[in-house]
Structures are given as structure tokens and as C-alpha cells.
Nucleic acid binder design. Structure first.
Lengths: 99, 99
DNA sequence: TTCGTAGTTCGTAAAACAACGAACATGCTT
DNA sequence: AAGCATGTTCGTTGTTTTACGAACTACGAA
């Protein structure tokens, strides 16, 4: 109906991923996970200059964006990259930056 | 230098670029400019479902993030990719996604 | 000089984000 | 059952983002 809707689905998806990556703390977490397969929230709270509730919110955002996933490993939660979406993001950025 | 600051300069820079890319309108503009070298604000207002003042704000954000630059060509303003920073972003994302 | 075009800036309002501490939920271990 | 460890959720606060229309600025043309 709206012929002014020129924004593509790819652009929306990339914006969604990019937005999730738009905070230093979240970039830190993503880079860590992309390199070491998994980690626990507690590991991060020790290293990072934020309290656990704030970290929890950042992790939730990354999860909502689909970039990471959490697996219960009581009483902890193991976080890893969501490989499927990670790959999609990878492809999108690759195509976007023409690399 | 704060030695408790585990967040790297690269992570901060990427977060800054990612944040600027974190909106569909801005992704649209960036993709357009990455493909056609330049455009005018008026061209965009016609295509996009937002008013010119809103577009102006988005362009300002892209400019502040360093991803685009504007050149006065009275009475218009010609927008292009900021090639130097674009290249930096390219490298950062490339390294980050390991591509 | 006055008018029109092209954009930016200002003022405003609603929504989203970011951070914290307190309270809560969960599931081991005594 | 009671306590502990690990996180999440809630409530609050202040900031930032997104969007709009109105007002403004800059410049070229009539």
C-alpha cells in the first residue's frame, strides 16, 4: 500500500543487528564470545565496570537481537553466539561493505 | 589510562559506527551512498517516508559518526561517503566477523 | 530587493535506553 | 528445610532517540 516503503528487509535486519552492537559493553561481549565459544554472566561482571543487573539487560538485548543465546546450566547460565544469526549478520555486513 | 577499563578502543569505535548504522533509514542512506557515490538531501526526502527535518537529523548522526560527509553546492548539499572512515569501519567489521 | 528553493535548527512530546540497588526466582548443598 | 550462589526482574531516575511542524538561514534568480 505504502509506495514510500523503500526500505528493504535486509536494511531492517542489519539495522537491528547494528543497533544491538551499538554499545561498547555489548561489543565487548560479542567479541569475547566470538573468540571463546562461551562464557557465564559472572565472568563478565568481574571484568566489566557495571553491576550485574545492568549486564543482564545488555545480555537480554543481545539475545533479543538474536546474536547470542543462553543455556541454563544451573545455577549458572552459559552464553554463546547464536551461530545461525551470527552467520546471517556476517553475510549481511560482508555484502554491505563489499568484502 | 584506566587499567580497569577492559573495553578496547576498537570496540568503542565499532560501537560508535554500529550505533549510527542502527536505524533502517540510516542503513538505507548508507547503502545508497556506498553504491552511487553521492546524493542530495532532497532526493532522499522524496523517496523516504519521513519529513525533511527528521532526515536532516539522521544525516547529522551519520556525519557525526564520520560515515558520511556533506559538501555545500548551493543551494543544495551533496552528501557522500566519508571514504577514510568508511574504510576504517570496513576493516573493523571485517576483522570482527573474521571475514 | 523580493521571492523561491534547499536544508538546518528549534521546540516539543513520546518512547526507548542505560544505569543502579533492592527484591525475587532457581536450584545446589548443607 | 535453610542457606548460598547466580542471575533476572522490578522500580526508579535521568538521558537519548525519534519524530513532527514551525521558524529560520543561505543563496540564486527574477
Amino acid at each position: 500500500m505504502n509506495n514510500k516503503d523503500v526500505i528493504t528487509e535486509k536494511q531492517r535486519k542489519m539495522a537491528r543487528y547494528a543497533k544491538a552492537m551499538g554499545h561498547p559493553i555489548r561489543m565487548y561481549v560479542l567479541e569475547l564470545l566470538s573468540k571463546q565459544s562461551c562464557c557465564y554472566s559472572g565472568d563478565l561482571t568481574e571484568e566489566l565496570p557495571i553491576v550485574k543487573s545492568t549486564l543482564s539487560q545488555h545480555l537480554k538485548e543481545l539475545k533479543d537481537a538474536g546474536l547470542i543465546q543462553g543455556e541454563i546450566e544451573a545455577p549458572k547460565i552459559k552464553y554463546c553466539i547464536d551461530k545461525e544469526n551470527w552467520k546471517e549478520a556476517q553475510e549481511l555486513f560482508k555484502e554491505f561493505f563489499d568484502i
